[in-house]
Design a protein around this nucleic acid. Structure first.
Lengths: 248, 248
DNA sequence: TGTTTTTTTTGACATTGCGTCAATAATTGA
DNA sequence: TCAATTATTGACGCAATGTCAAAAAAAACA
């Protein structure tokens, strides 16, 4: 029994090691650049051994995505714990999103892979379940803030929308802008000079459109975002480095 | 001279033929599934011949994307020509987006490929230029509506945003929601029952947030969207089938 | 029309990478 | 210590990319 557990522990340690080796390759050279042989060689194992841990390349990528989405969820969890109005807490989620995109670039890139048809289809149900679980957790945290807002009468949803559908809009605008920013090499060339600020303004404007109290001018919104950002960053950095350390 | 032109025409005809053959493969089996040999075999040519037309697989995909983005631009052009207030014209763009996503599914999927790091990097400057040109044209059409709105005092931009940055927000929310809808197999499982309606409401709310006149309740917005949709669909279908025919 | 030159097509080939599996090595347990 | 079980290995089959010398076709010329 003890033996088995030790073995399992070793196995898990190596699984983690594979991910640690694979991640920078995936980041630097994309899905194509990531090769099982290369991971094996770098770890000084044979190819077959890697396949004892992951049935295929896609599964490695999704496993990395689970890690990255876990970090996002942790950031969200802490953002949602900010003390203040529901709107401030929602803004804190925005701060977490910005932090994730800007300071956890690797994780952001990995997270994107799960939207790739081919990768998703080739991977197992079980890892897909983990991903969906992370997604649901993130959604739950943010939708919780919406529900609190409604409960506290700071937000009245006139439309026939669920709390999750409200979040969906914010999710879409953030996610969409991140993809566009990362994949359009020259947004500036088509007149978009400061995409980050633009999205802040849009989020503020959208929440104002819903009359989420207190309605804010975008100047005040920006100041508050800055304040929240400074307040949250220490914790965010520590969460981030926690994950990086568990990589070692 | 005449000889040369005939040859060039033949060459171009075959280039188009390659794209015609490649498109359904790309749609059905993704980038991985698309194989040069397979395209060659299906056309009863040798592999090498395909490489006389396209230097690599990536370039074929981007060429397909140029076609698809051209269709989108055509839809936008016609949407922007709707008679009515600036806000109605902007809504018509929204209708075009919905039409594109729902009825030009193939094109939408192809368009997504250009956001893939690997594909973008491996392709030539010249085709990248074409893509960017399409992107800029789409942006130009929509930003033009924003500028008209400002000129007609139906919209006042208090924030320090360019017209393009206003469009960026709408682009992000639409693009983001489309990706999320297509790649999250079970949005319903996390509480998002009607993503299309949700995004409509968000767009309406966002425009209301900017106080883009006339401010609308989402009920009226939906009615107007339906009206515009019916008015535009015939033209949209004809634009769509035009592209499909040029495939033959 | 016949011959030479140019252009185009061909498909075998070198290369790379995935994923498998029989053979080998290591570990366990008696 | 030795058999039984388990894990590791890396050569191999397969498939796909992109190349290139040779073959075929087309054009130019006489």
């Amino acid at each position: 029994m003890v033996e088995l557990t030790r073995k399992q522990r070793e196995m898990e340690r190596r699984t983690a090691e594979i991910l640690r080796v694979a991640r920078p390759i995936l980041i630097a050279e994309g899905f194509q650049g990531l090769s099982m042989h290369r991971v094996a060689a770098q770890m000084e194992y044979a190819t077959g051994t890697i396949y004892n841990h992951f049935p295929n390349k896609e599964e490695i990528v999704l496993a990395l995505a689970v890690e990255s989405m876990g970090l996002r969820r942790n950031l969200f969890e802490h953002a949602a714990m900010v003390t203040g109005s529901s709107r401030q807490r929602m803004m804190a989620i925005g701060v977490a999103c910005e932090f994730f995109t800007q300071h956890c670039t690797d994780d952001f890139l990995v997270e994107q892979c799960i939207r790739n048809q081919g990768i998703w289809e080739k991977s197992s149900e079980s890892i897909q379940g983990l991903i969906r679980q992370c997604e649901a957790q993130c959604m739950g945290i943010v939708a919780g803030i919406v529900r609190d807002a409604v409960a506290q009468r700071e937000l009245i949803i006139y439309e026939e929308l669920t709390a999750e559908e409200i979040v969906f809009g914010l999710w879409a605008i953030n996610y969409g802008s991140q993809i566009l920013t990362h994949s359009s090499p020259s947004l500036a060339a088509i007149g978009i000079n400061d995409p980050i600020n633009a999205i802040r303004v849009h989020c503020c404007t959208l929440l104002n459109g819903f009359a989420w109290q207190p309605v804010m001018m975008s100047k005040d919104y920006n100041d508050e975002m800055k304040r929240l950002s400074e307040a949250l960053q220490p914790k965010f950095w520590s969460l981030r480095s926690q994950r990086k350390q568990s990589d070692n």
